[in-house]
Design a protein around this nucleic acid. Structure first.
Length: 575
DNA sequence: GCCGTTTTCGGCCCGACTGTTTTCAGTCG
């Protein structure tokens, strides 16, 4: 039983309890316990009688968790499933419908699923219910029509393209004093549901009118004095955008508030409460003086709560508040610390650019070195290199190296780990390489034992320096391989193998949570690489650094921050 | 159901917006 599986059952339990009108604080307690299980650094299934040490887990939820671990199920959940239609929680995904409305619809009209909801709305039955009306009925129909059409979440790189474009537009507003991104896009989460902006202005009414008139706005969802919600189309992508309008002196508080996360904000409010203050998007209210304090910037805001500045990427309530209180926040890696990209492809395999062009582009980015790591012979779909082609490539690398000043190209390979666990090149070749990356590109569906064995054996080879994209997931497209991640981390620690954070925005693999776990529990070292297939692809390092920061990585955790001499030493792995 | 440097009860983050009301409930972030 994984933490995620246990948490999923607790969350489902919370959904059903909410729908059956259970005390909201109780429902919230289950959600909190679920989150705590999910974020635990330990395998909760192994915790035994230490369950109640998890924050938000007490006697009651501990009992439920024990039952889930022992039987894989929850009697309470089964019971609720008997009492309520099993598809009812699906309706919670319809925007504008919450537990109260759904329960009313079920009780009064026997609506148990999406289809029944649509039929009832079309037959104008919903408008007759207390608390409902024609407008709500219409909105339900619109949301059903939209349901599943637009992807619920977009990849960060797509969302950022839309956000940058729309921000440029907003910045042109005459009455707009300042505009910044907030929400999950500012925290650089790997996927984004809607884009948040905070705008400072003294003329909110006028600005709100102006925003909805912008050419990128294709639909106005709602519009008030302090908030405008619209659908924006830019760069061929439609996304929902929320713009919050505040006065200039409220800006810092509002920016923090709308950056979230929700969970982080809860912790901030709880801390303020210890001083007897109330935090809102407008500032920090002191009931004794009846004054609302506003702030020059976010650092000022945090400092009023006697906290150091917490970077947006950490604001997830994954331990940042505790560390901030103790003055032990990590000094997160920055893009300026990055000296060279160690995983990229050239024309020799499936890349679009020559070695020279890749090197030149890297040099222009301020790098000191790169590694050319084309695919190996078995990966025929990507024109993997035979040994003879490798030797040819080395000659070209040497030539370009002589041509470029203060820059070094390392001889590397991204070598396939074959389905039976063998490596695609013999040791005699590997030992002549400057850098050897091993990775999986075939037989993704092997069972956990086979897959784990396959990767572990590759790490045990003294010439394999790096495992690329260690879980193989493609965000929202392909699940990770079945692999025992703790085995993998332990072997990396034992053998000195470096795990990659692949910066491709579709991969981001290892992800933020696994990075944090690998660092904290196993003390691993990482490499961040773009896996670029063209010179432009090198720019994706932005997403790698973003994910590394979300995974609490510091400069010293990442080999790409080392000077070349130290890097070469680190790559020896006891050879 | 959880929690406690206001500790075993009585709170639990806070405010905006919408659609339904005629003073507010439900939803959302």
């Amino acid at each position: 039983m994984t933490n995620a599986q246990i948490a999923a059952i607790l969350n489902e339990l919370a959904d059903f309890m909410e729908l059956s009108g259970e005390n909201p604080f109780k429902v919230n307690a289950y959600r909190r316990a679920a989150r705590s299980v999910e974020n635990s650094r330990h395998a909760v299934a192994e915790l035994r009688d230490h369950l109640e040490e998890l924050p938000g887990v007490g006697k009651g939820t501990a009992g439920v968790i024990e039952e889930i671990i022992a039987t894989g199920r929850s009697g309470q959940l089964e019971e609720l499933r008997q009492q309520l239609p099993p598809e009812l929680p699906d309706l919670l995904h319809i925007p504008g419908l919450g537990p109260k409305s759904i329960y009313t619809l079920y009780r009064e009209l026997d609506i148990t699923n999406l289809q029944a909801l649509q039929t009832a709305a079309e037959q104008q039955q919903i408008r007759e219910l207390p608390g409902f009306g024609p407008k709500k009925e219409q909105k339900i129909l619109e949301e059903i029509a939209r349901f599943g059409k637009r992807p619920e979440r977009r990849l960060l790189h797509e969302a950022l393209r839309v956000a940058h474009r729309f921000k440029e537009q907003l910045a042109k507003g005459e009455k707009i004093i300042r505009v910044e991104m907030a929400g999950s896009i500012r925290r650089l989460r790997e996927t984004i549901k809607d884009i948040d902006f905070v705008v400072a202005t003294r003329e909110p009414g006028e600005v709100s009118e102006w925003i909805v008139s912008l050419p990128e706005v294709v639909e106005v969802v709602n519009q008030g004095e302090t908030k405008v919600s619209v659908i924006v189309e830019a760069e061929g992508i439609e996304m929902s955008v929320d713009v919050r309008l505040v006065t200039p002196d409220q800006f810092a508080s509002a920016w923090h508030h709308f950056t979230g996360s929700k969970e982080h904000n809860v912790r901030i409010r709880q801390r303020a409460k210890q001083y007897g203050w109330k935090v809102s998007e407008y500032g920090i209210f002191n009931p004794e003086t009846e004054e609302t304090k506003t702030f020059a910037d976010e650092a000022d805001f945090f400092s009023h709560l006697e906290l150091p500045y917490i970077p947006p990427e950490l604001r997830e309530d994954r331990g940042e508040m505790e560390k901030a209180e103790q003055g032990e926040l990590p000094e997160l890696i920055r893009i300026e610390d990055y000296r060279g990209d160690l995983h990229m492809h050239s024309l020799y395999s499936d890349g679009a650019d020559s070695i020279y062009k890749m090197a030149k582009a890297a040099q222009e980015r301020g790098y000191e070195y790169i590694a050319i790591t084309d695919h190996s012979q078995s990966l025929k779909v990507a024109s993997g290199l035979t040994m003879d082609e490798i030797f040819e490539q080395w000659e070209e690398i040497q030539k370009v190296n002589e041509e470029l000043e203060n820059f070094t190209i390392l001889r590397g390979t991204e070598m396939d780990i074959l389905p039976d666990g063998r490596l695609d090149f013999p040791d005699e070749l590997l030992e002549q390489m400057d850098i050897v990356i091993a990775s999986i590109h075939s037989s993704f569906r092997q069972d956990e034992k086979t897959m784990t064995r396959r990767i572990v054996e590759a790490m045990e080879n003294p010439h394999v320096d790096i495992i690329a994209h260690p879980t193989g997931r493609l965000i929202q497209r392909r699940d990770p391989y079945q692999v025992d991640i703790d085995d993998l981390f332990q072997t990396a620690a034992d053998t000195g193998t470096i795990l990659e954070l692949n910066a491709n925005p579709h991969r981001l693999d290892l992800n933020d949570e696994l990075l944090k776990k690998a660092k904290e529990e196993y003390g691993l070292t990482f490499t961040i690489n773009t896996d670029a297939h063209s010179a432009e692809g090198l720019a994706n390092i932005f997403f790698g650094i973003a994910t590394a920061r979300r995974g609490w990585l510091e400069k010293q955790d990442v080999i790409n921050t080392m000077p070349l001499k130290d890097l070469r030493k680190r790559l020896k792995k006891g050879k």
